[in-house]
Design a binder for these strands. Structure first.
Lengths: 244, 244
DNA sequence: TTTGACAGCTTGACTATACAAGTTGTATGA
DNA sequence: TCATACAACTTGTATAGTCAAGCTGTCAAA
């Protein structure tokens, strides 16, 4: 296996995930039993089970009591786009051949529509505006606002490539969770022009706020997508917890 | 506590979730330590930890090593709409005062745009078409296709109220997971008329396929939302598993 | 006053064990 | 032949314990 994960359970999960992705464990078949996986990885059953529960959460397998862990059939194109994934990470795994153009990078006040209910109004942050293109066609405009602290500045090449790679690998930040909101809105003439929208000026707007493991918010983003190119794919499990 | 859950870990999770929702554990404060929760519920630490990990996954708490489990600040209006939740369940928890109109209920061939890549083309299913209104305004058209087996028929009042309640409580089905896909499309004149759309005829289309715990698919759905009323809220955690 | 070591708390990771419960094939008995 | 019982597998749930690692206040020494 040999992953860069420190944890035993994480590296087991990573290893099995790769074997599923590469067809070593085929959809519709069962994984080796938990006991066999214990032998295979030299670990206890609880550790194997924690690894399997990660794969269950991701939608890679379904556990069936008395039978085993069935590998689910997630076609490439239906692989979940939800979760916290950077555009560059998607670009790699989906082989989209996308390009990124940095349009702005300056300190600015966080606009009200992004700040509302998330962070103090009037607060300033490092604003980065980027245009994503696929095959020369504009697809997405990303408006990022990076909070200081914990982020003081961002080198130009990090903005052009992957902000997340810079945060995680260079700054050692522990990106943990995010809240997201998807709506459809009439956007400003500026955004409409960048995306080359028609008269309706409708775009899909994804607003998100991303947090570090210590619950510090560090990123506010509004992404404007061309509606004809937008596609959000999700895998969800029915929760046992109910409210009210 | 007293929940209808059979599991200790599930009832602990349910109990803590309700206490958070009702403000007994306030956002920004820490839960009792795992050791204290052990005493409180008379269980082992592992069981408590499994309960807490459910709450972590849901976005209700954030665990911080050395400190404790911090209750996160999920305002009512930003509570995740993702996951597998029926319209009626949302209606209850969000107090939307919605009404449902059953427009059709008959056996029909699953349309190609829904069947594509999910199920055999030309297969028939029980088709239920419903119009959801809030304050008399049409908001959503749901096109459900229920597969036989496992679903033979559906009583009229179940279609008007909650299909999920009928499936789970009456039929004893174990609804487990779903794949979803959100796009923006120009819809048919029929749907456009039902939703009272303007000339652009754009609607948000949510296509989903829902499965039982034994991996049997039982429901295909296409939901058409008025774009000006559509809002999708999600909570996501950064995954440790990477591909490629 | 400031610094540093440490005790005592917290969660994280892992192990070992036990029993319950669901599935499946096989052998036994009528 | 057929049905039943059972053995041998599977996963589910819960327990108890160990050590690592992160946080915080206290107390003692400089």
């Amino acid at each position: 296996m040999e992953r860069y994960n420190k944890n035993k359970q994480d590296s087991i999960a990573q290893d099995i995930a790769l074997k599923i992705q590469h067809g070593l464990y085929q959809a519709g078949t069962f994984l080796p039993s938990e006991h066999q996986l214990c032998d295979l990885y030299g670990s206890s059953r609880e550790t194997v089970r924690r690894a399997l529960s990660q794969l269950t959460e991701l939608g890679l397998i379904q556990k069936i009591r008395g039978k085993g862990s069935l590998v689910l059939d997630l076609q490439r194109f239906s692989f979940p786009i939800s979760g916290i994934t950077s555009f560059q990470e998607l670009n790699k795994t989906l082989e989209m051949h996308a390009t990124t153009e940095v349009l702005q990078k300056k300190t600015a006040i966080i606009p009200a529509h992004l700040a509302a209910g998330r962070v103090d109004e009037g607060r300033t942050a490092l604003h980065i505006e980027r245009l994503r293109k696929i095959d020369r066609f504009p697809i997405v405009v990303d408006e990022d606002y990076l909070l200081n602290p914990p982020i003081k500045d961002v080198p130009d090449n990090a903005a052009a490539n992957s902000l997340y790679a810079y945060f995680e690998k260079e700054l050692g930040l522990d990106i943990s969770y995010a809240t997201k909101e998807i709506t459809v809105e009439t956007v400003s003439p500026r955004i409409a022009a960048l995306l080359n929208l028609d008269n309706s000026k409708l775009a899909v707007v994804v607003r998100s706020m991303t947090y570090l493991a210590n619950t510090t918010p560090f990123q506010l983003t509004a992404s404007y997508h061309r509606p004809d190119r937008f596609k959000f794919i999700d895998f969800a499990r029915r929760r046992k917890i109910s409210f009210k």
